[in-house]
Structures are given as structure tokens and as C-alpha cells.
Design a protein around this nucleic acid. Sequence first.
RNA 1: GCCUCCGUAGCUCAGUGGAUUAGAGCACUAGUCUUCGGAACUAGGUGUCGUAGGUUCGAAUCCUAUCGGAGGUACCA
Length: 558
Amino acid sequence: MQEIENQLKDAIKNLYNLDFDPEITAAPANIDADYSSNAPLKLASVLHKAPMQIAEELNIGTPTAPGFINFTIADDALKNSIDTLDLSCGDLEGKTIICEFSDPNPFKVLHVGHLYTSIMGDSISRLYEYAGANVIRANFGGDVGLHVAKTMYILKQKDIKDLTIEDIAKCYIEGTTAYEDDDKAKAEITDLNKEIYKINAEDIHGTELSDLYWKGRELSYDYFKNFYATIGIKFDKYYPESTVAALGLQTVKEQLEKGVYEMSDGAVIFNGDKFGLHTRVFINKEGVPTYEAKDVGLIFTKWEDYHFDKSVVITGNEQLEYMKVVLKSIEQYAPELVKKTTHLTHGLVKLPGNVKMSSRKGNFLKAVDVLNMVKDELKNEYNSEDKKVSLAATKYAFLKYKMGGNIIFDPKESVKMTGNSGPYLLYSCVRAKKILAGVENIRKANIATNGELLASEPHNDGRERSGSRANVLTPFERNLMKKLLGYKDVLSEAVNEMAPHKVANFLYELAQEFSRFYENCPVAGAPEEAERAKIVEKYLNVMTHGLNILGIEIPEEM
RNA sequence: GCCUCCGUAGCUCAGUGGAUUAGAGCACUAGUCUUCGGAACUAGGUGUCGUAGGUUCGAAUCCUAUCGGAGGUACCA
């Protein structure tokens, strides 16, 4: 494929003295060719010639109306390309990329949205690692703030001996209700909020309130770490909001004097209206830094810690314009940091019927609920408790979607393990492994009966020898091989666009090709055993590689 | 009101300048199996690509308008 591109490029250069990067794509299934280029159509307006004329003048491949050039690749060339298929990529070698995602708040439970962003963020991190970057997975969360005060307000009224995360979750819902419905509670929670800031900032221990706070905080972080471990994700760095709040506060105050931020109604704001954005509060009239100021502190802290080449922040869509305001304000005094920062957003996870989940109201799906539903399905339908399979099903169910739009998570549908699903991919890999094991067994049996030398000869069962079968690959073999050759392009697209779903969808299509090959092309013991085994091996390499980018491991059996 | 994103098959989604016929999965129907494991394969689609204009040799894809949905819109995150 690369050779075709180079040949075409040279032909264009020689004939028209033009530097042009032709696009080569896989030909559509109903066309009798393997690859195709639309270069003549693209060149038509530049050269002021009819596309077909250009296609013919180039004298390469097969010119086809209205101006495509089609290419058919010979079996030997195809085999050679498969043999030399190289998956390595060093585009981001030496770069440091900090990837922030998941961002759960202590004193709250992890819901399905956290599961989604965690899986997505990890996969994007893996894409960068594949490209050679040093990736730091960062996790930012509010260990101080109103939500903590709301939870603590209820928590301190109760006499709980062994505090659990469920207690905390329940108290948060009660606290939010009290805050919204009861003015007296609201005032107390506001005071409590300031008190908690103080406990945190001055590291106060020994009082009833501070002990409860530190206990709850520790419990939350342990709970997060345990959960991430069960889904196979590890963060390199936790940034509790309290650790960046001071720097944020200080920075905003400094820039207030320089006129970037302004006072309004007793609060420090950034007037985004000037930039076509909206205005937001960075320090509220109580003197407490809001999330905005903390994000200012965070970006500078990240820079001090890592001197990153790129900083990716993944959050929900609802923070899109919020983040624009924050970044626009920072751009006024640290434009180089903003230039290195990319904000990626994902949609909400909703229940069928477009029901929005709300942790404040308590009608939501917890992250662990989703894992359990998948586990139950696997147990009930396939009598299996394989953790790799249930995790693959969960991860793939989220990763196959393009990031950005809302996801409708139907618990019944999303746990299915047929069709375009993680287990389907794994199943094809397990089959591929069985094939290779079968081939190996035959080889061993041959050694036992014929000795090492004879057995190393190509397998011969009286029919044609495999070496004599050049240029008669079946369509099933050809399709699978061509698909395999398309993997690298998909990978580089996925890296550039930070789009794991492209890898996911490619792997599914690849697995479909493999299944067709599997149904139609026997390997072990067949005359074509040697070259087919090579294809299967390559398939397994590519699948292992791609699934690794999705954070999915292949089991031995299933 | 203003800003951002989305609208593709009954449902959930890919495709975002290129191929006479816009693709997958789910669901539904009918087949394939003494198999290298059936979590599989094959066959079955009357889709106003939200609507209307425009740009282009060519538009689901780009532009404009419009309708519908979601999110945001100063002291939550």
C-alpha cells in the first residue's frame, strides 16, 4: 500500500512536476480491485484537465470512471507485506503528556459516568504511550468544597461506628436535600464549608469534626484506588483540590492586580463577555476559591511537576464552556500553557428513555453496579466467572462509541456478549490461539514419528505442497490480509484524533474478516497450513496490540 | 434570549467531500454444524441521512437558514 502511494506520487511528480500526496484507500467491495486512489479527481482542478485524462496519462494501475485509479495487489506482494508488517510508531518519542480524567470527588460515590471517562481516558493514554510518549495519568478531585460540607453536615449528626462509602453517599443525598429545602441548614453548611477548608489547609487533627473529615477523605481515596485496580487502571498522580487551591487563589489575586480578573459584587470574576464567552466567578465573596481558581492552580501545578509537552483534560460536555473561560483567562498571562492544553469532552451516560442520572437525587447507576450486571450476565448465559471477559465486555461497550455525544446505556442491551462486543473479539482470538496450538501439535507429532529434520520440511499429506500454491490465495485470505494491512493507518488516525473508538471499530471489522476466514479456510493439517498459520499469527499480533490499546486482555480459554 | 454540541434503519450507533446499490450491531425470519470451540457463519432492508436552499464534476459529509433534542449561560462541580 505504501509502495503504491510512492509509485503514484512519483508518477505525478515526473509527469506534472507537482508535489502531491495521493490518498490510497481500500477499494469498495463491489469493485474488482484492492486499492484505489482519487488523485486524478483531486488534480483535475489544479491541472485544468479532465480527471479521466489524468488517470490515463499517469499510466499506472487501472484508470476507472469518473477518475479513479484502481490497483490490484498480487498474492506474493500481499504475503510479503504481511510478513514485514511493523506496528511500531515513534511519533511522540521523548514527549511528556499529562492526561487528566475520571476526576471523582471524595465524599461521593463513583457512578457510571466515572466508569466511562476512566475507561476512555486510559485508552487515550495508551494511544499516546503506543506513539512513544511518556504519559502521566492524573486524577483531580474535590476533597474540599460544598459537596463535602453537605455530606459532613449530615454525617456529624449521626453516630456511625464503621464509616462506609455507602454511608457517605447516603449523607450526601440527604445533605443536598437539606441545603436546597432548608435555609437554616444552608447557612450552617456554608459555615461548615469554610471550617472544612480550614481543617484541610491548616492540617487540623484531634477535633471531632476534623477526625470525621480525615477519616472520610481517606476512605474515599482508598475506595477510588480499589475500584481503579479492579478495572485495571492506575493513576500516576492524584491532585486533591486542596493541594492546588492555594496556588490558584494566589495566582488569581496577582492577576487581579494586573487587571486580568476584576471585582464584581464582592467576588473576583473573569469577564468572558469581552471574548464572546460568559463571565465566571473565580473567588466568591466569602473569599473561597471556586472550581475556576482551583483549575488555575492545577494547570500551574501540573506544569511545575512535569513540564509537559501536552496536557489533555477529559471531562463531560457540561464543562466545555466553563473550561473555555478558565483557559481564556489563563491565556492572558500564561499563553504557552494554554497552547499545550487540550480539553476533550464526552457526553452524559443516560438511561433509556433519555433519563438523566443525578447523584444529587440518588437515581443513578453506580460504577460497580455496571460491573456486576456484566458479571451476572456472563455467569447466567455462559456459566463463566472470567474477569478478563467481563471487563472486556464492559470496556468495549463504552469504547466503541465516538466521544462527544450522549450515551444511552441500556443495562439489558449493554451487557450482551454477541455481535459488536468485547467478548466477540476475544472469542476470535481464542479461536486463533487454538488454531496455532493445533498446528504446533501436528509439528510435535511429526517430530515424534519422523524426527526433527523430516518434520521441519513443509507439511505433505500427499496433496500439493504449500510452497507451490503461489498466487491462488482465497478471497477469505486476501480480505483478512488486506484488513490487517490497514491497521497502522487506523492507529495513527486514532492517535491524532484521540479516538479509541476508531481502534475498537476496526478491530471488530477485523474480527469479522477473521471469522469468515475461520469458517472457510481450515489451517491445521491443510496443505496451506504454513502460510495460513502465518496469517493467523499476524492476526493475533494485531488483535493483541489493538486490544491492549483498549485496555483489554485476551484470556486463554473462554 | 445568547453560546456549544447533537439529529443517519424499529432500537443503539459507525461513516464527515468520492464509486452503478449510505453501512454495522440489536431485534425479527430462514438456513449452515460427524467443525482448527456455535459467544460463530450465510441469506433476508421501501432509510424523506431532521427540513429547505446554496457551493461542487460529485454532498449524509462543506456553507446559510430553519425545526427538534441535550448542555451551558456569576458566586455548584
